[in-house]
Design a protein around this nucleic acid. Structure first.
Lengths: 249, 249
DNA sequence: CGCATCCTTGAGGGCCATCAAAATGCGTGG
DNA sequence: CCACGCATTTTGATGGCCCTCAAGGATGCG
């Protein structure tokens, strides 16, 4: 069964861990997870799903669109993570009870929520699924580490190239977008906040990628004829995304 | 019971989650965790405990000293995390089977190991302890997010100040070092690799902290008469370390 | 068609990188 | 004790990446 029809079968949670250790989940666990999720809810651009520090009692899976993990400080905004469909955006809040950052919709978004108390029962009754939930939060940590390395190692054009290469790969793992265009709702200011540069410099970095013939970025949409070249330029190596060959604990 | 005598009772794992959600663990769970750990093993400066990509079958808790999470790439070294005593340095390897980074001793170190198959039994038999293990890996992710924000927001002197403020707080939570001196084995090159600057610039940043009267750093040891001032300079807010008030899921 | 948002371009300046070299500290062995 | 070698720290000079301030152009929406 291909990824798309699989996701027809599990419209809410079908992309969860897709391309990673989803294939290790039993049909029963996949069906159970799907049954835990509530009716999808839409969010508008800029809506804050979870606020930093607030006590939380449910988790959310992202079905459509993009979300950002944001830390604000004194009027400045710092993006510390990006989420794609299939991501359990605030699953770490289940174990930690509150978040150290905000979760904000980028563009139009659909999410489904799952009560913590239901996840609690998964912890005791379905150890394999519980392990998969744990692993999902750790995949996010691996992405954090890569971001740290990128901020330490790359200049602005390479950071932006790496960001899109990562998004492309993550969406491909869930069966989305393997074409020449990657559509996102991100403004250049968003890109700047993700890459730790000023909006003006993000603009020049985008211009540099165009100059180099690697990618055209227009209103968040990236067009390229050569993903491999873009990835090579950014030093992108998908190893840290733990695609495919992962088994559950 | 104070933290020090508590750690006499659990010499290997007594610092695990100390100052965070350790107080939520039952005596039985604490004793059980202690019983899982093997005989402590020493490491020398630079020893690599875990290599990126290698399949792993045991996890390690850091008892004494510091370790670094390192990503190497083309001769350059990027530090993506620092570990203090009490940290379960490669616990995420239990769920992920391999790491996306190396784990390297900084200075002399002692670690104790726990077999994954023993942790596997914790997953099914001790859900509260399993939840605590999960939370511990998420605390590390929260630290990653803060590092991302710091790299996006702070200049070099502030990054170094924040690094030491964080280490001071983390060590204080495990009952270590609440004095005016924080001893570490880090060279200025290490600090540079943690902060994403060149060694030469790290040196000038250290000099700037001295100039400002905030801290003297000599051979990795930081002396200050005013931790609060140093923290304020770096914009350090310990919220992200989830100290004290955390409960388990 | 007016307005808001986003994108683009220019100028000047600061943080940080790199190359180069000297000074300091520390362990080892004479 | 002193000489030596090595790693680390310090200092100087030059250049590049990126910042801020400022203003103009494009795009899309009501």
């Amino acid at each position: 069964m291909d990824v798309a029809s699989h996701q027809d079968q599990f419209p809410l949670t079908g992309a969860f861990l897709a391309g990673r250790l989803r294939h290790r989940l039993s049909e029963s666990d996949k069906a159970h997870l799907e049954s835990l999720a509530g009716t999808p809810r839409p969010l508008k651009d800029g809506d804050r799903l979870v606020a930093r520090g607030a006590r939380i009692e449910r988790a959310h899976i992202l079905i459509d669109g993009f979300m950002l993990s944001v830390i604000e400080k004194g009027g400045d905004r710092f993006v510390v993570g990006v989420h794609v469909p299939g991501d359990f955006v605030d699953l770490h809040g289940f174990a930690l009870q509150r978040l150290d950052h905000d979760l904000v919709a980028a563009g139009s978004v659909r999410v489904a929520e799952i009560e913590h108390r239901r996840l609690q029962r998964v912890m005791t009754g379905r150890p394999a699924l519980a392990g998969a939930l744990w692993a999902a939060t750790l995949l996010e940590a691996a992405i954090h580490r890569r971001w740290i390395r990128n901020l330490e190692a790359l200049d602005a054009p390479r950071r932006i190239a790496h960001l899109f290469a990562e998004l492309h790969q993550r969406m491909a793992m869930t069966g989305r977008n393997v074409s020449r265009t990657l559509r996102t709702p991100f403004t250049q200011t968003d890109l700047a906040d993700m890459c730790g540069v000023s909006p003006i410099h993000a603009n020049r970095a985008v211009g540099r990628l165009r100059e180099l013939g690697l990618a055209k970025i227009r209103r968040g949409d990236l067009y390229t004829s050569d993903w491999k070249a873009l990835e090579a330029y950014a030093g992108f190596d998908p190893e840290y995304l733990y695609g495919g060959s992962l088994s559950s604990p």
